[in-house]
Design a protein around this nucleic acid. Sequence first.
DNA 1: ACGTGCTATAAGAAACACTGATGGACCCTC
DNA 2: GAGGGTCCATCAGTGTTTCTTATAGCACGT
Lengths: 284, 284
Amino acid sequence: MDPHLLRTFVTVAETGSFSAAAEHLGYTQSAISQQVATLEADLGLPLLHRRPVTPTEAGLRLLEHAGPLLLRIRAARADVLRTAALPAHRLTLAATPLALNSVLAVRLAAARAAQPRLRVTVRTCGRDEVARLVADGTAEAGLADGITAPNDPLRLPEVGPLTTVGVAEEGLVVALPGDHPLAGRAGLRLADLVDAHWLQTTLCPLERLRDLLGDGFRPALDYTGDDVHTVLNLVAAGHGLTLLPASAACGVPLVAPRLVHRVELLHGSLPPGPAADLAARLSP
Amino acid sequence: MDPHLLRTFVTVAETGSFSAAAEHLGYTQSAISQQVATLEADLGLPLLHRRPVTPTEAGLRLLEHAGPLLLRIRAARADVLRTAALPAHRLTLAATPLALNSVLAVRLAAARAAQPRLRVTVRTCGRDEVARLVADGTAEAGLADGITAPNDPLRLPEVGPLTTVGVAEEGLVVALPGDHPLAGRAGLRLADLVDAHWLQTTLCPLERLRDLLGDGFRPALDYTGDDVHTVLNLVAAGHGLTLLPASAACGVPLVAPRLVHRVELLHGSLPPGPAADLAARLSP
DNA sequence: ACGTGCTATAAGAAACACTGATGGACCCTC
DNA sequence: GAGGGTCCATCAGTGTTTCTTATAGCACGT
């Protein structure tokens, strides 16, 4: 279970070819063949079918583990190196599209004003990517958002000992097309919308809603990106409903069950310095 | 970041001695010294102070990562090997002390009755240990319990892609000494007990209660084991209060906030066979 | 001062992991 | 159906890595 062999195995599985993996990793095809053979011998099981190159059942299981495992190794390395890093005057903040809302943007402005020499790069990406970037040290801190019960933490992928703090919570609205019969209401209960068609999005996965209220929430259209503007257009065009934070869209407030849009700040161990200061100022 | 070197580093840090680690791992002291040096060179940082052998700050960070990392590697290996394992006629069920309650014990009996040839070993251990045993394949399935809001999953340590299913939930009681002024009540609200002295136990950590209701819950006595009988004796002797599942103790039912004692079944990918059958029968 | 217990270093031996060459299986083309 | 191309497995050779053995160096207690 040498990570080196694991990485080779993943590359072979991804490219579907020993030769391509060899080129990709800068080895000869022979080396790749031997590495895979070593891994298979170690586990006592074939991991790949050959011709065409396809993971076996055991290989699929291993692939499921390999990604997080390699990520954690990078995360550990980054975390150790952080202890010796000099306080930098530039740092990267990774954030999901809805995480850096107006409240947090203002706090970020205050933090920058307090440290004029600090150069900040904000980088938008998906939720898992935020955790990944923070873990492996590419970003000094991250902001991730999600829908949860008040004061409940988000369920972020675990990639090591990261600190997570809730930094903002706000109510949710149901986004509906302007001509929807319920559009004029003052508040809506999720239970009343069980039979509606819903968009399947990253922020508002239907599985999560079904967990809360049982079956229903018929999927209308899957949206795998994370652009709010696009989602709003889809809603307006009648593709389906979705939940959004109140500040991101006009819609009808969700009154029951009590759910909130929550933003969490995550970071590794921060030595005193600009990064720690930024983290402190982003917290309420 | 070779796991091999990592394991050596952990052993050295644990034993506080290169020589002891060498003996422990079956190498010469020289090899250990070189392995640690290699790891330090790779990271570019000293990880251990020498004489006495003590982790540096960077070493402490690495130690925090190393345990989970090595566990995940074992877990990955076990998971892959499971795909090829023959359906066994004996299996181990790891369970926390309060997890295998009367309801689940009955279901377990039904499962065994349905498969007379199956030999089951039940093993009691702490919550983290349950996850560990299931992950590394020592136990085919595990039962872990905890206090949570209704239908909310427990927060178990993540050790890889394990399946978790809630299999039982029941109400909680506040365990109090028989002569306690509140002992006769029909129900209690947690908010009324904020100022009482509480036992700090694995099942009912005070931090969790403070999360729900703010400060308070003065710690009376720390109990780090997990034996219910002992806890009840401590409560009866007036050391402090604690929460227990209704079926495990007589006490005053907790009516607010709505919390439950939840038991979850966890297992890796189970190929059809006795283990999968048992898992199915333990679910409600 | 000296012995004891510890880690670091040097040198040689064994093990390992790579490259390059070759062989066999499959597929496509003609 | 023969020939050429592509792909993976295997073999032999080689350079590197990683051990063991032996020894040096350091701190501490007697």
